[in-house]
Write a protein that binds this DNA or RNA. Structure first.
Length: 712
DNA sequence: CATAGCCGCCTTTTT
DNA sequence: GGCGGCTATG
């Protein structure tokens, strides 16, 4: 390896890069050059004679994998190393060893929306009420079980109480439905891979030979299933290198188990531990604040945060009247930064919840600031994109009923609900899939008009024609499907934007074609299922970045704005009362703060409109922990000149507005009315209003959007 | 069978 | 406030 490069490394970094055999734990604080160390390590391994093909590096996101691939390629020889996420690796393994994993290789990958439909069906099939067993809760519970590698069989014996028994039944039914559709959800990808490796030593052996060196980044956010997979993959040689920072663990809610990194040394007793405590990213005062905050976490291994940069600009904490003023002020400050020579791609605005982006977006448009929102699933959640992908899915996996139902009448081709019901009944009766029932229209007597039969046959014929040749360019095939299915013409007339979106999807399929060898529709679909919009974040484009604190993980910016640092938002209200969750929220804030290289702007608003209600807020407890020493507190608005320490005037019990009998109120849809009764139940208060339309309504205050009209 | 409009449900973070 | 699902109507 180029000695000019390695000379730039610190002694600890060098130790991590050139460590040869056996387990290695790299505890790396924020901004410690961790990613660079991993990339160099790949290069160093190759330099010492390891074939790129024998290296497997796992990153947390697809975006990170993509960037690491690019960086590794600048060293030359690293092409051929497997660099991807855990999920992506699992897809490859499951496809290769499908038979041994007792699945079909052409499986669909079900995302959140697909999963919700399946779990709803499962709850219904178990004859349970969806109010007692809400789909979201059930999915969460199932996900927790899967991440702990508890399958349906292992549950039955331990589960005694009513809810657990019902959960086991729903879980079982849910898995059955997925299997019928030849589909796996995200958690299945990990669970099935872990079971495969556990049950088939020969597969373990083969993969251990293939991947002689395993590197895992962001190890603090791995879950139990991922841990088991890693353990199995390196069982033959123990060449495992993990990097992470317990203080940056922010995915516990998703099953991440911080014990994986804390117990690494006892898991691999011969482990070499390297600590990277120097920070090359942030100015000293930003680090000092971040350090002060994280030191409030009790369940924590003491770790130093050593600055290498001088003090720099002071951290600014600002107070605003409401979120509109906050957003406008952020936009103004960004304008000033740009006027001062800053480039927009060095600026990020971070927030706790995605919904905060809306107000910012409007402010940025008003102020004519180019921006990009890095959002979870904006693009892939669009109806037209889901429809298009459903079309393609059906071509490789006809068992995917969710996909089939999406497109069977999209665009409208005269196959309506009644027809689909009849087909479904026939399919169940004859124990065939819905798609197969489409081919049997002649035998289905319940179908009335011959016209309907003809329409169904035409649809099947169209699908079969697409399926005739699935090899070659995915983009060309996708374009053909788009046009010949009638979707293109339909969208062009009804929704120009949607039309363009599908074109964008087809263009991105073109990019896939170029880098895949050879391109395959199945591989394309299985890989895009794992993609999110965050993967589309373009750090080189001259736009300010707007994203959640979670999405900012692993990134860095000259200027960082963290907005909405209020009780209920950061820490989020859902974590109240749980010390562990509060600690995680604190880590989240810590991650956000340590993204900043030159200047950090923290702000909160005195009032915030949440779901249509303007509420009084309280500054985050984290701000009190930071104190105001060395911090410049700015009050932008005359209405809000109290500072952090002067806040005992707040009445926290008034989360929702109160009403009194006979008060005049206005409702958005019912108009004017008079309050008959107010039942104070805190957040769940109910107000009974007799409207001028004559009707009397009982409304939940938090949803009702009632405004006080005063007494005229 | 298609469409519009209404009702009721949910609402943190994401691979 | 936003969306999916349901119902009434054309």
């Amino acid at each position: 390896m180029d000695s000019k490069l390695t000379r730039q490394l610190t002694p600890s970094q060098r130790e991590a890069v050139f460590h040869k055999e056996g387990p290695l734990l790299v505890i790396a604080g924020p901004g410690s050059g961790k990613t660079r160390v991993i990339t160099y390590r790949i290069a160093a391994l190759i330099d010492s004679g390891v074939r790129p093909h024998n290296i497997c590096a796992i990153t947390f996101t697809n975006k990170a994998a993509q960037e690491m691939r690019q960086r590794a390629n600048t060293f030359g020889a690293s092409a051929g190393a497997h660099i991807s996420t855990f999920h992506s690796l699992c897809v490859r393994i499951l496809r290769q060893y499908a038979a041994k994993a007792a699945i079909k290789p052409n499986f669909s990958i079900y995302d959140d929306a697909d999963q919700t439909r399946c779990i709803k069906q499962a709850v219904k099939d178990c004859e349970l009420d969806s109010t007692d067993f809400p789909p979201a809760r059930m999915l969460e519970a199932v996900s927790v079980l899967k991440n702990k590698l508890m399958d349906v069989e292992s549950l039955k014996k331990d589960f005694e109480d009513y809810f657990s028994k019902m959960l086991a039944a729903v879980y079982s039914r849910y898995q059955h439905i997925l299997a019928e559709h030849n589909a796996l959800d995200f958690d299945d990808l990990l669970m099935k891979t872990a079971f495969l490796l556990q049950g088939c030593p020969e597969v373990c052996c083969e993969l251990g030979n293939r991947f002689k060196y395993l590197l895992i980044d962001e190890y603090q956010d791995t879950n139990h299933a991922q841990y088991k997979i890693a353990k199995a993959l390196v069982s033959a040689h123990n060449n495992i290198c993990v990097t992470g920072d317990p203080d940056q663990s922010i995915y516990r809610w998703r099953g991440a188990d911080i014990r994986n990194i804390l117990a690494f040394e006892s898991d691999w007793p011969r482990a070499v531990v390297v600590k990277l405590e120097e920070n090359f990213r942030s100015s000293a005062n930003i680090l000092q604040m971040a350090d002060k905050l994280i030191s409030f976490n009790k369940k924590r291994k003491q770790k130093r945060l050593i600055p290498t940069k001088p003090d720099g600009k002071e951290v600014l904490v600002s107070v605003f009247f409401d979120e509109l003023e906050e957003a406008d002020a952020v936009a103004q400050q960004i304008k000033e930064l740009v006027d001062g020579g800053a480039s927009l791609n060095s600026i990020a605005v971070l927030y706790r919840v995605n919904s905060a982006s809306r107000v910012l977006e409007e402010a940025f448009i008003r102020n004519k600031i180019p921006y990009q929102i890095v959002r979870g699933l904006e693009f892939y959640n669009r109806k037209e994109i889901r429809d298009m992908l459903a079309f393609l899915k059906i071509l490789v996996n006809p068992d995917d009923k969710i996909a089939l139902l999406r497109i069977i009448n999209t665009p409208a081709r005269g196959i309506g609900k009644t027809t689909i019901d009849k087909l479904g009944t026939y399919a169940v009766l004859h124990n065939i899939t819905l798609f197969d029932s489409l081919k049997k229209v002649k035998d289905i007597d319940s179908l009335s008009a011959d016209g309907t039969r003809a329409k169904i046959s035409a649809f099947v014929k169209m699908i079969e024609q697409f399926k005739a040749d699935l090899s070659g360019s995915v983009a060309l095939l996708a374009r053909r499907v788009f046009v010949e299915s009638g979707m293109a013409e339909f969208l062009k007339v009804t929704d120009e934007g949607a039309f363009e979106n599908v074109n964008e999807l087809i263009n991105s399929a073109g990019q896939y074609d170029q880098q895949a060898q050879p391109p395959s529709l199945l591989d394309y679909l299985q890989q895009t299922a794992l993609f999110t919009d965050s993967d589309a974040y373009d750090s080189s484009s001259e736009r300010a970045a707007l994203m959640t604190l979670h999405a900012a993980k692993g990134l860095e910016f000259e200027n960082v704005f963290i907005i909405g640092v209020e009780e209920g938002l950061l820490p989020h209200e859902r974590s109240a009362g749980d010390d562990d969750q509060i600690e995680e929220e604190r880590r989240l804030f810590f991650v956000g703060m340590t993204r900043a290289k030159a200047q950090l702007h923290i702000s909160y608003a005195r009032y915030r409109t949440v779901k249509g209600q303007m509420l009084r807020t309280m500054p985050s407890q984290f701000l009190y922990e930071l104190g105001v020493d060395g911090v410049k507190l700015i009050s932008e608005n005359r209405n809000s000149h109290d500072d952090v320490d002067d806040d005992n005037s707040d009445d926290t019990s008034q989360i929702v507005p109160q009403f009194v009998t006979d008060q005049l109120v206005r409702h958005k849809t019912f108009g004017l009315g008079r309050v008959r009764e107010f039942v104070d139940m805190g957040e769940n208060s109910i107000v009974v209003v007799r409207f001028n339309t004559g009707q009397t309504k009982s409304l939940l205050v938090k949803y009702a959007d009632l405004s006080d009209v005063g007494n005229f």
